[in-house]
Nucleic acid binder design. Sequence first.
DNA 1: GTGAAGGGCCAC
DNA 2: AAACGTGGCCCTTCAC
Length: 646
Amino acid sequence: MHHFIEFAQNAMFAPPLRHPVHRAVAQTSRFGKKMRGQAGHPGGSGDTIENIVAMEINFELVRDAVGVKNACEELAREPVLGLDTETTELDPYKGEMRLVQLSSGRKTFVFDMLPFRTNGGLRENSELSPLRGLLESEISTKVLHNAKFDAKWIRHELGAEIANAFDTYLASQLIAAGESERRHSLADVAQFFTGTVLDKTEQLSDWRAAELSASQVEYAARDAAILLPIREQLVDRLKNDDLSKVAALEFECVMPIAEMELNGFGVDCDAWRAQLDTVRGAQAKAADELQDLLSAGVAQASLFGRAEINLDSQQQVTDALKNLGVPMPETTRAWQLQPLAEKYPVVAKLLEYRGVQKSATSFGENFLEFVEPKTGRVHADFRQIGAPTGRFSCSNPNLQQIPHDDAYRKCFRAGQGRTLVIADYSQIELRILAEFSADEKFIEAFRSGADFHLTTAAQVFNVKPEEVTPDQRSFAKRLNFGIVYGVGASRFGLMTGLSQTDAENTMRRYFSTYRKLDAYLRDSGGRVTSERKARTASGRLLRLNFDENDRQAVGAARRYGVNMPIQGTSADILKRALRLLHDAIRGTSTRLVNIVHDEIIVECDAGEVENARITLEKAMTDAAVEFIKNVPVKVDSRVSEAWSKG
DNA sequence: GTGAAGGGCCAC
DNA sequence: AAACGTGGCCCTTCAC
């Protein structure tokens, strides 16, 4: 059977075309105006066709110990090396690494792993020590495209950690600065930045063959060699756009994430199934009861007994509810239906059904298919720049959307004799906002160390902290969260139950309490609309494109652009923390197992838990302090067998 | 059958 | 004044 690895790999590199948000943007940007990809090739010489023909690759296939030694001695003199691998599968737990290609640009060595494979794999083979040494050497920069992929294979199979990675994939994403139409596969990046068109015919070849064809080897060599001229262009572009610092931050985060994906997160499948059974029972019951209630609103109900409708069809459910005389809102979303639930039991039942249906499907049997048999753990796929803000995204499965409910969280466990340490930043985005705005009163609410929402409520409503009513605290809390997203009075009123005028007055009161916060948000919004860009503390850039005549689009771009530095700085901090943690736990039993935006979960030997906890807290605090100088940073941590609270 | 698009909802 | 930011997954609907 042939394995179309390169093809699949490229598909993986490409920003997901079918991603809902990006898809929406591809037609009309999220701010309403048609977007265009950038024309021309920055730095490209323009002679695209000539480049293909002219690209002579000087390469050598290495298949024995002497060859490895000689090649590595020659390559060790180079300051920058292109690095690529060819593998038989995408997943290191499922396939094998066939080739490792290292290129100085002038000369490329293609290391065939097949002759070096022993019963213990490649790890034990000392003939590969020079290669490991080269990959781990701090002296040379290694240029890779989607370094996480190769780093995982090299870590898993060779036991080596790549030092000094330069990732052309991440660099291309940073330079694109949120331009969603730009693609980032190796072929796209090569074309865009050097004008070279890559020949893809060998993508579909069989990398398991005992003897690789000359064409296969040349193809492999070229993919490593091409990385050097691409990097040259990227380095210039990164400098020009002041992105060098954030690029270093991203590159240093690759190895921690590669290791985290290899580590995986332990899942108690029995506990998961038990919870699923419970939910399925509740789902069946809720479905049955909902059918009964709805059937009264279905025409043929009386003739044939109960008329079954598809409870997952918004259309059918809406029609049935209308027939029952329920005054339907514009959408059937939970927050819109909630007010009707008290008066109409059928609406309450629908909401109940929705809840259990979500649990039974999104967190059902399918989740268990992601458990790797070899490890008994889930090895999710983390996209390092998953959002233009710099946040991670996660899929297959998405470990960032596991319900809070202990019934789910308790299924994520440490291995035998091991313990989890779970740490998260307290109110990190609000602290970032406090730092950016330099609002003394807002900062003071953090410095006091007391309940933040209560303290802000006392400030806003001008009462003593002990006199703050639960309502006042709740208003302050919702506003504290809302302002980060640019909430308006109407939405604030909707979620608090305040009238439009009361909501407006409360917001006015809030912003007059925090004058500099108000000024910062206005200023930030103004800059977003005039300069059409935004940056985080690390310098991460977002370019915004919108039609200035479309008020809705301007408003959306403004909220997005104001939110991005806050959300993105939080991502910067997390990424920095991951690197500091990675360096601090080297040689210990501590392993990174999951991250969720402001939370880091590690697993360690039970006896080492106190050290691990201190190390984790220190890494997170040190990282945050690099970006937040004037507001105290707080990290909460706990030690547990499982992810649950208890 | 396959896939795009939209609704809905889980997380931070 | 005028829609609260970022993701992924599951479902239905509809077009091909």
